[in-house]
């Protein structure tokens, strides 16, 4: 139900300093060989999915599983920083069917409600219930432990999807 009320969420300008944070480049580089191997195997099997974190203009990220059938969704470090202290995370219900562009949850911080959007269609298979107990952990590790939901994926993501480098440039523009 909540999803229908939603519009979008994100982070942009609230703290311009957040944009300048060096972010997880080291981690990114470390991940790349694995990601590229998956790409190569994919090319063989003909799938287009790439196992690398991709970012939306709404400041969510998705990362596909090795078989490309499911993905993990979360909000970016940039978003988590600019929202301020998170006091509540509204998670979707497991088995919820979702369409790209839907709000699948919401975050509340400093009297502000912001929606979490999904760039992919599919079904919610798992939610990170830790966030219900400890919403503040979303500020600490939004791109790791504090993922929001895991989804089975149908079709391609909608809207512009950016690599880490592209996304960092995008947040610095704003």
């Amino acid at each position: 139900m909540a999803a229908r009320f939603a519009v979008a969420r994100a982070a942009h300008q609230l703290s311009s300093s957040a944009a300048r944070k060096p972010s997880a480049f080291a981690c990114q580089r470390w991940q790349r060989p694995a990601a590229m191997m998956v790409v190569e195997r994919r090319l063989f099997s003909g799938s287009a999915a790439v196992r690398e974190k991709k970012y939306t203009e709404d400041h969510e990220w998705i990362e596909y599983s090795a078989d490309g059938k499911t993905c993990t969704l979360g909000i970016s470090e940039y978003a988590a920083k600019s929202l301020g202290d998170v006091v509540y995370v509204e998670l979707p219900q497991v088995d919820l069917e979702i369409s790209a562009g839907d709000a699948i949850g919401a975050v509340e911080s400093v009297k502000s409600a912001s929606d979490i959007l999904t760039p992919v269609s599919g079904t919610v298979v798992e939610v990170n219930s830790t966030l219900e107990q400890k919403p503040g952990s979303l500020n600490k590790d939004p791109e790791g432990e504090s993922w929001i939901a895991k989804l089975t994926v149908e079709g391609e993501p909608e809207g512009k999807m950016m690599s880490k480098e592209e996304y960092t440039a995008f947040t610095e523009e704003a």
Binding site: V7, R9, A10, D58, K111, S112, A113, S114, L117
Partner: peptide
Amino acid sequence: GSAYKLTRAR
């Protein structure tokens, strides 16, 4: 008393 709703652009 203040409250806020944030969307991507607004």
